[in-house]
Amino acid sequence: MSTNPVLEAARPAARAVPVRRAFQLREWLEREAVFSWLMLTPPLLFLLAFLGYPFCYGVYLSFVRRPVAQPATFVGLGNFVNLWSDSIFWQAVWNTFRFTGAATVLKLVGGLGMALVMHQNFRMKGVTRALLLLPFIVPTVLSTVAWQWILDPGMGMFNRILMYVGLVTQGPSWLGNPTLALVSVILVNTWRGLPFFGITILAGLQTIPTELMETATIDGAGSWQRFRYVTLPLLMPVIFIVTTFSIIFTFFDFQLVYVLTGGGPANATHLMATYAYSISMGGGQMGLGSAAALAMVPMLGLVLVAMSSYVRKA
């Protein structure tokens, strides 16, 4: 340990501090709790001011009836009762779970594949990786505009290819058919999020020691067995982190659906985020809209708790 160059660098300076008077203050500062709280206070104050206040205000709003530009009246759980009996809300909940579930599974499987492919040695690795990240980099509002064309029934590339190959004489309506519309928004979300999974899992792959693989090979494990019994277990923590991230971002995804379908046709792609938005902005019901937004928090929390306990067992 003492050969560590960083430590060597730190040493002479450390020896030069034995001033007696400052000692007590220093001792106090050196206590773990004191040091920790000194570090923690500024960011916590920042978060409290900029996140805590709006969050508490949002929670407060969900318990009042509060039209835009009008005073609030307390309604207790009234907003939640309202939502409970709102069929569009439940459709949005159901859509959100299907959207998040399908997109996350697709991104996970695809991302794992992407990572395994990119883990191999080939020329121009760096450039390839950066280029494959493009869908993640381009602002969603703009890439979604491109998807409006790609999914166009007559001009879109999907249907052009289908027609060219001769599979159909007239392509399907990607955003008009309720089922296909949900498939389409899942597809676009997958397209945008896949590189994030790919690059993150790739990083995980790279930290797996090669010796482990070699030992497994010597023991006679085939490539599938190596993947199943060596690679995958070691990747689990990474997969957990990246999936958690992605579930949160997908669950709250708003822009993509808003620009592509607006939640239509006939609410087939309405998500909780878009519905909450349309209640508070379109309907001007700040209270009810906040309640709908707040309803996402425990649902998402439940999903995450279930996931983490599952991972711990496995």
């Binding site: 996140l51 969050f55 205000y57 949002g58 949160i248 709250f252 708003f254 996402m296 928090v297 929390g301």
Partner: peptide, 13 residues
Amino acid sequence: AYLVPQTLLFVPM
């Protein structure tokens, strides 16, 4: 803090 949706925050913000 991660689980708080932006839709809930933007008016007080």
